[in-house]
Amino acid sequence: MNVFRLTGDLSHLAAIIILLLKIWKSRSCAGISGKSQILFALVFTTRYLDLLTSFISLYNTSMKIIYVGCAYATVYLIYAKFRATYDGNHDTFRVEFLVVPVGGLAFLVNHDFSPLEILWTFSIYLESVAILPQLFMISKTGEAETITTHYLFCLGVYRALYLFNWIWRFYFEGFFDMIAIVAGVVQTILYCDFFYLYITKVLKGKKLSLPA
């Protein structure tokens, strides 16, 4: 464990909690892409099946359970409890254009052709593009609530911090996982546009609004 990985995990946890609390407290999921949240629930489900097969540490197990639990709770709030506030007209990204290619790639490029490893690879590739429906929805509505931008910032920063974690682990442990690194770079690049808007607008107290 190193400082980049720990702060990355905490940033990820913060993002998940911020979103869950935002929906729960405001009793509304306006502006939130349910499709992205379904993809994240799928990412955690396929990645954390090893909860059933191997124990790494209490930290590892408890964080995985929290992530999976919050992901499904968020999907439940969006599609069940506060369904009336779900903005389906703007959440129109075709997720099959993500899941199918990612699924195919996971079969072609992986570390080991075993079910658990292919599912883990699928989850790594899927996570790198899972935010696209949410970013697409913001571009369609032309704006995002400030709390939503904080959620996205924490979510984007988490994987950027993991990039530093991988540099650290390569240098000090000789460990590297090319699949996770390449997917992590792609994932972080997809946030760059949002990072620019967040830093130049939201941090200056303005609302995040895109030229619609």
């Binding site: 570390h111 460990f175 996770a180």
Partner: peptide, 10 residues
């Protein structure tokens, strides 16, 4: 690379 069997990252 020196990939650990178990993926120890979240």
């Amino acid at each position: 690379g020196t990939l650990t069997e178990d993926h120890d990252e979240l």
